[in-house]
């Protein structure tokens, strides 16, 4: 177990190193990405340009720049943004983490419950109109781009029906810190939670349904029925419990990616300054230090999520336990 953990950490470091190098190279390979002129300002004189380039170390060879950036990121931890000069990248990311976590955890709870219910009902009533309806709605949920759904939600709750009794409680777009105002925190996040969860409820519902239907064809289901324990028990204790493995595995990976900033479109649409939005802004403005920080943060979480999923898999499926 310890060995497995150590091996994982080693893998993680390797992956993050690889990603950081690739990001770095892509940035400098992009034509027009040289930040000196943008930092120096519009119509800067050539001397100013040279000065800026020197100040930012942009006239040094690439490997040196990479090493310097990594040092600033990990060792001295004072890497600053190219675009918002003086803004330290790491504290900015750290401050954005609770916002992303609030969004993602809330949505995850919603879609776990929702996906479970949808998948279970659809799988259990396979072929019925209920099953078909649920699957159609799920498909619609999966097909709707999250930013479109978010904008439509905004249109309804912020703009058109904002003053109606249904939505007058919806506060202005943006994040309200929990410590400052728990109720406001909750109110501001409800609509983003629902929007983000919709896609996943559809997806997970369909996956669970398929998994469940497949599981219910297994012999042990027939055996369980032969024991006379009742169909509901058969469905839940034997069918669902066994299908959960695929469900939970998928969840772990999706959740990891989202915590790493994958919900960026939702964050942009709802004005939540989470890690995803930071990534989005940094990509728009080609702010290399910020890009590097958010990408490394994201890759850390994806690798971590993989690891956690493996551990959880072990708990859920005893057959895998002994393989360790």
């Amino acid at each position: 177990m310890i060995y497995a953990l150590a091996a994982r950490l080693g893998q993680m470091a390797l992956v993050m190193f690889g990603i950081s190098v690739v990001v770095f190279l892509i940035f400098f390979a992009t034509p027009g990405s040289d930040p000196s002129a943008r930092i120096a300002g519009r119509n800067a004189s050539q001397e100013t340009l040279q000065q800026v380039r020197h100040d930012f170390g942009l006239d040094r060879p690439l490997p040196v720049q990479y090493a310097l950036m990594m040092k600033k990121l990990f060792v001295t931890r004072d890497l600053t943004s190219f675009v918002n000069r003086g803004q330290k990248v790491i504290p900015t990311v750290t401050r954005a983490i609770p916002i992303t976590l609030s969004l993602v955890i809330g949505a995850a709870l919603l879609w776990l419950i929702g996906g479970l219910i949808v998948g279970l009902i659809a799988g259990a009533t396979k072929g019925s109109w209920l099953d078909r309806t649920l699957m159609m709605i799920s498909l619609a949920g999966v097909s709707m781009p999250v930013f479109w759904l978010g904008e439509v939600a905004n249109l309804i709750t912020q703009s058109r029906f904002h003053d109606s009794w249904a939505f007058s409680w919806v506060p202005a777009l943006g994040y309200v810190p929990f410590g400052r105002d728990p109720l406001g925190w909750f109110q501001a996040l409800v609509i983003p939670w629902i929007v983000l969860a919709t896609l996943y409820v559809g997806l997970y519902g369909r996956v669970l349904r398929a998994s469940l239907i497949e599981t219910m064809q297994e012999d042990f289901i027939r055996m369980a029925r032969a024991k006379g324990i009742g169909e509901r028990q058969v469905l839940l204790r034997h069918g669902l419990r066994t299908s959960l493995v695929a469900f939970v595995t998928m969840f772990g990976l999706d959740f990891g990616a989202l915590v790493g900033g994958g919900a960026l479109l939702t964050e942009v649409v709802f004005g939540l300054q989470g890690v995803g939005k930071l990534t989005y802004d940094a990509l728009q403005t080609l702010d290399l230090p910020m890009i590097m920080a958010t990408v490394i943060y994201a890759s850390f979480f994806v690798v971590m999520a993989n690891f956690v999923v493996d551990v959880v898999h072990m708990f859920l499926d005893p057959r895998v336990r002994d393989a360790f």
Partner: peptide, 16 residues
């Protein structure tokens, strides 16, 4: 941080 769309709505709602 708010997109232009959201900003217009916020001004309409008197939030900005």
């Amino acid at each position: 941080g708010l997109t232009e769309e959201a900003a217009v709505t916020a001004i309409q709602n008197g939030q900005a």
